[in-house]
Nucleic acid binder design. Structure first.
Lengths: 193, 193
DNA sequence: CGAAAATTTGATCGAAGTCAATCATTGTGG
DNA sequence: CCACAATGATTGACTTCGATCAAATTTTCG
């Protein structure tokens, strides 16, 4: 996939960019092609990068009392970054790894800020992306806090019907805030009914 | 408090606005002074308004299986809106009410979009506010999903030491996703130790 | 002051967690 | 290309945290 096509696609998906601005974005775009299990961000490090996924998927996770807890998944046409490090410039509590062989676009915070300062339409693009992310997190709060384990899993499947084929259940369980065993029992029940 | 001072203050708190832009914002600003228990948004209605709190506090809540569940609180210098209705233009699942006599600034979505389209620095202001909100929601997910009832309460107190003096415990309990009884027991324990 | 609202306290129950063992799937080196 | 080790998923027995139901007590406010 050509870089121009990618920027066009981001522009179409989120908020339109002028040709002029698309050119400028292109200039500061780096494309990565990485194998499954590659690490994009290591725990404890600073990361001023955001990754846009063209193909594949990634997972942000952290260690909570020694246990691996998944915090975010991203698939094609979505962004992933160490939210804490990227936005607050603190060491990243999260690690980010690839769950499949993937093709990514890498943006740095400086590039983004420069583009946003120079191009009003890029500033808007960022605003739109952040707003979408915020709404997604809002949905997640509603689901995680006030639903039963089973309802949470059902909600996840509704939002992402094929996720179980791409992400190991262990990760889904920790993402939902339930144990692997509980998730397994829920799935057992669902099949039988 | 004069309207000019308010806009200046928003500009200082979140992201600077040019004098020109501040003038334009002023023109579409409506100041409200309302009594405790006033309703800003009713459940099931469309609301394209966002409220900035100058004095007082407000609460967004919804009914889940007949029970009142608090979803968001906002205090001085913060914004509150029906997130679903404002951003997705759907009927609001939330109602919003005042917990104290309050002074508010009301913005409509149209005004905001027009200002954002015309003024790059206003677009940035919105971006910054949405980003802050997103980070706050992120913290909330981490706390609500992976902490014990007691830890959640402790986290809340840390972020908002005086909240118990302004918001009834019932609302705090439902916000934290625990029952009033459990919250009361936690508070009992804390005092004794 | 007294009624209503808010909070505390007590007894019991249940959903999901923990610990432990087994079964299934995947992938790598001989 | 098979073997078998490593990883992932299921199942079972038991425990626990916080929910529910119920009642008492305290606070607020007309």
């Amino acid at each position: 996939m050509k870089p121009e096509t990618i920027i066009e696609h981001i522009s179409e998906t989120y908020s339109p960019l002028t040709a002029d601005c698309q050119q400028a974005v292109l200039a500061s775009t780096k494309i990565l092609s990485l194998k499954k299990n590659s690490t994009l961000v290591r725990e404890g490090q600073f990361s001023d990068k955001t990754f846009y996924i063209i193909r594949g998927c990634a997972r942000a996770y952290y260690l909570k009392d020694g246990k691996d807890v998944s915090d975010w998944f991203a698939f094609e046409n979505e962004f992933i970054s160490s939210i804490v490090s990227f936005f607050k410039n603190e060491p990243s509590p999260h690690a980010i790894e690839l769950l499949e062989d993937s093709i990514l676009v890498e943006f740095s915070r400086d590039e983004i800020e420069q583009l946003a300062a120079k191009y009003h339409d890029f500033e808007r693009l960022i605003r739109v992306i952040v707003t979408k992310t915020m709404l997604k997190q809002y949905e997640r709060i509603a689901s995680s806090q006030f639903e039963s384990a089973e309802q949470k899993y059902t909600n996840l499947l509704k939002a992402h019907p094929t996720i179980t084929q791409r992400v190991p259940l262990t990760h889904l369980a920790s993402y939902l805030g339930i144990t692997l065993e509980t998730l397994s029992r829920i799935r057992g029940l669902k099949k039988r009914i």
